[in-house]
């Protein structure tokens, strides 16, 4: 019971943090999404035409939503956890009877909550620009949850290893952003020539976006079950790795 209260406290602190600074955490995704819909949807979307028989604007909605979920879940955990390390207030938890896995759960819960909040905002904006329909709600919920958990874990791991603020911007800017943009947010991989299509299939984010799109539109570039399994496998790998590092005290204890 005491541990549950400790978890609730971390979660409360994390949610309170991103709500308190909402112009930095919730507003940017709303502005960016509106611009995507305006530029790619309204202005040039009509010239691009349909994808998988779906109007271009509707086609990009799931990818745009999931892109926000990925960047915000990751960003929330990496920024919050690294700031705690930098200001050393992480010691508040380290000296208390809060086991590593509980601390991890609290931060991942915070990342999930931010993903949910931003995902909700972006979905609301999408509903203004498009005729939003959800073909398979269970797939949408499942892929959303798994993706938010996966990237929250990845953000935690990044912060655990980080020794400077540069270290927490390298992966989001130079790894995550290219993978997201090349993960089929704005196009179907069917449009790509053979080699590029094969290379794209190595990108794990493609599977997430494709499965999420299936949840909304009923069409996907990849097998949805396989996509869900891939996400679960990634979660397990990152989870076990992070727990092992926490047990060793990597990045936290001397």
């Amino acid at each position: 019971m005491q541990r549950l209260i400790a978890f609730q406290t971390i979660l409360y602190k994390e949610i309170h943090r991103f709500v308190r600074i909402w112009p930095q955490t919730l507003l940017p995704s709303a502005v960016t999404t509106s611009l995507y819909f305006l530029i790619f949807g309204k202005l040039i979307g009509g010239r691009i035409g349909a994808m998988h028989g779906i109007p271009y604007m509707d086609f990009i909605v799931p990818g745009v939503i999931l892109m926000s979920v990925i960047t915000n879940s990751y960003g929330n955990v990496v920024a919050s956890f690294y700031s705690s390390k930098f200001q050393r207030n992480i010691e508040e938890m380290l000296i208390a009877p809060v086991p590593g896995w509980m601390m991890l759960s609290g931060y991942v819960g915070g990342g999930l909550a931010r993903g949910l909040a931003v995902g909700g905002v972006v979905m609301g904006i999408s509903a203004i620009f498009t005729d939003l329909k959800i073909a398979h709600p269970e797939v949408v919920v499942l892929v959303f949850l798994l993706t938010a958990i996966l990237f929250s874990l990845a953000g935690f791991l990044n912060a655990l290893f980080a020794n400077s603020f540069d270290d927490i911007s390298i992966i989001p800017n130079f790894v995550l952003t290219p993978l997201v943009y090349l993960g089929g947010v704005f196009y179907s991989i069917d449009l790509l020539p053979g080699t590029w299509k094969v290379i794209s299939l190595v990108n794990p984010i493609l599977y997430m976006i494709s499965a999420f799109r299936y949840g909304f539109l009923g069409v996907a570039d990849v097998n949805v079950e396989r996509a869900v399994l891939i996400i679960i496998e990634f979660i397990l790998v990152l989870l076990l790795w992070t727990l092992w590092l926490l047990r060793r005290g990597t990045g936290l204890k001397t």
């Binding site: 541990r3 209260i5 400790a6 409360y12 700031s83 200001q87 050393r88 508040e92 208390a96 009877p97």
Partner: peptide, 21 residues
């Protein structure tokens, strides 16, 4: 070493929370 952006009351209450209060 506390979070400089939190309120004094939250800093102490959160610490109590980590101990299961």
């Amino acid at each position: 070493n506390f979070n400089q952006f939190e309120k004094a009351r939250d800093i102490v209450a959160n610490q109590a929370g980590y101990y299961g209060i």
